[in-house]
Design a protein around this nucleic acid. Structure first.
Lengths: 231, 231
DNA sequence: CACCATATTATGGCGTACCAAATACTTATC
DNA sequence: GATAAGTATTTGGTACGCCATAATATGGTG
């Protein structure tokens, strides 16, 4: 397992991550864990101190996050954690719907039983995490579910984009999965995706994947409008 | 004032671009103009000299391009201009199809006559550039056409992604538009998109946009397999 | 002559110090 | 009390230096 992308060799994934990559992960993690809230200023030298790295690194990390859309840069004022408004969130969910629907369709058309098995496995993980109330686990295994969808049909570019977008709505995701009934509705929708793929119904798989994202988006919309009554 | 991220106000776009942004544009331009070829090493200190900026800037630029996928970083060897293989190009065209199809559908469903007018205008530009054999102009006005598609339904996130992907296949694009008959086939396909939008046919607009990308992808595939007989 | 160990070089990774310009915050003066 | 002047704060940008590693050259030894 964990075949990765294309290396047939048995190389160690990350022999030595650079300090920059470590710092990047830390800051990203800090943002979507809520340690840095949207709108917070990210003062370079403060980050240097907190991360224990030089300004060079911090600047590169901030640029990277900026190009990912997690950080916004106010001219002559510096970087802040990007705010996510309802409209942007809506667009992100919409794009995910289009891409995940596409992947689901391709999976259905490929008629490969290992796809169904892998998806069932991921779905089991999700249900298991829900039962244990392991919410980070739910997020991770949900991502794993979709990763199967994309990687089984070798769509790593699309998967990269979905991942990029997902980071930006991560805090919304953690709220949507805690919603009443999402623990049964979510897996049920994913089961429908699997069903459509199993019977080779591309159109049905597309719609099922789309439905899943759409309902998540609806919950997210409710959440976002509840938490910011007045922008 | 300055509500935050999206300014619908009439602010001057770039009163003062930072040096870093200038350098970023320069390098990006150098890559897709072919000044730097895929596989070329991008030695930091050389770039400093060529651009006349400090290493800090160069590094930030390289990181940015890396996250855009235009530059790849070989561990312990440094950055090179990313190679684009046929499979990746195929995936990029596929994603563009999904997103542009989505935008076209939304345009059709909105039933706004100004959309049709704007698209006709852009298409006229394209035809005009073809007549003048102004190939960079064709590329630019084709982009403008699609930008209308996305911006008229306020999908700037999707537009951003399409743009990101487009940069990576830019040299392919410049070859596809030079293909025999593309100067009549391309505009004809775009006309069909407009027609579907005009009659409010969402599904038709989706398919027409998809067709246009698909045929471009087919040409690109031919080009890429012709220019690299053996990888 | 073949081969292995040791320099040298090129380059990325990382850090420090410094300057200039813009913004925000005080303070002093009238 | 309001305004002008001065002072931090912080980014944008530069210059330089150090270390680690990989590739290449060099040289010595059997």
């Amino acid at each position: 397992m964990a075949i990765g992308l294309k290396d047939s060799t048995i190389k160690v994934e990350r022999p030595a991550k650079t300090l920059r990559e470590l710092a990047l992960d830390k800051v990203r993690e800090a943002i979507d864990s809520g340690h840095f809230m949207p709108g917070d200023r990210l003062v370079e030298r403060d980050l240097c101190a907190q991360l224990g790295v030089s300004r060079t690194i911090v600047r590169e990390v901030l640029r990277h996050l900026e190009s990912e859309g997690l950080v916004a840069n106010l001219p002559n004022k510096g970087p802040i954690v990007a705010r996510l408004d309802a409209d942007e969130a809506r667009q992100i969910y919409e794009i995910r719907g289009a891409l995940e629907g596409m992947a689901a369709r391709l999976c259905a058309e490929r008629r490969d039983s290992t796809i169904v098995e892998a998806l069932e496995g991921a779905l089991d993980d999700i249900r298991h995490c829900y039962r244990k109330k392991d919410m980070p686990g739910v997020l991770a295994s949900t991502s794993a579910f979709y990763q199967v969808l994309f990687s089984k049909v070798d769509r790593h570019v699309a998967w990269g984009i979905v991942n990029l977008l997902t980071v930006r709505i991560n805090h919304l995701r953690s709220m949507t999965i805690k919603t009443d009934n999402r623990n049964v509705e979510g897996p049920a929708q994913m089961e429908r995706i699997i069903e459509a793929i199993r019977r080779g119904d591309g159109e049905g798989a597309y719609r099922a994947a789309m439905d899943h994202v759409t309902s998540a988006a609806a919950i997210a919309e409710a959440v976002i409008s509840a938490q910011s009554p007045a922008v």
